[in-house]
């Protein structure tokens, strides 16, 4: 028994359970002491409260699983994936900012060509896939979003 408890802390799901419980607790504290306006009937806090309590219970159940020896394995290549994630968010935001400056067509073409260069390397990096495909795609995207749908993006200097 002692053995199970001491190894529990090394299990991945000990921490996922912990986060789940913490999230629920913080939420409940927020409802108890935060600035919630009362509303008619149950009030706006009732449903979040149920969700927080469920989170805590689920976290405890995850711990029970851990004690019974059930835990998912540690994630692989965590850093690469998270970096890519953050990178995509930054590129996405940057693309939106650039659309306001340069216009949709130029920005999308640049983004796509840049991405193709990033993802391919020499033996496979041939101009059809890194230059032509992005440019054709950009033309189609421009036609669809700007010409037909006319999405209300801030207008850039070019297209």
């Amino acid at each position: 028994m002692r053995n199970i408890f001491s190894t529990a802390f090394t299990r991945q799901d000990f921490y996922t359970g912990l986060i789940s419980i913490l999230l629920g607790t913080v939420g409940l504290l927020d409802i108890a002491f935060g600035n919630w306006r009362p509303g008619p009937g149950l009030g706006p806090h009732a449903f979040p409260q149920i969700a927080y309590i469920t989170l805590i219970c689920a976290g405890l159940a995850i711990w029970v699983d851990v004690l019974r020896g059930k835990s998912d394995e540690r994630p692989q290549s965590l850093r690469a994936i998270l970096t890519t994630g953050v990178g995509l968010v930054v590129i996405g935001i940057g693309m939106f900012w650039l659309i306001g400056k340069l216009g949709l067509a130029v920005t999308v073409a640049t983004t796509l060509i840049g991405a193709s260069f990033l993802l391919t390397r020499d033996p496979l990096r041939h101009w059809p896939s890194t230059i032509v495909v992005p440019i054709i795609t950009t033309a189609v995207i421009w036609l669809l979003f700007v010409y037909f749908i006319n999405i209300p993006l801030p207008q850039g200097l070019l297209f």
Binding site: P48, A51, L55, A61, I62
Partner: peptide, 18 residues
């Protein structure tokens, strides 16, 4: 298998909707 994790996710989904 992991019912507990599923329930935690349902609760998180509810919170996002709130």
């Amino acid at each position: 298998g992991r019912v507990a994790k599923g329930v935690a996710m349902a609760a998180l989904g509810i919170l996002l909707a709130m």
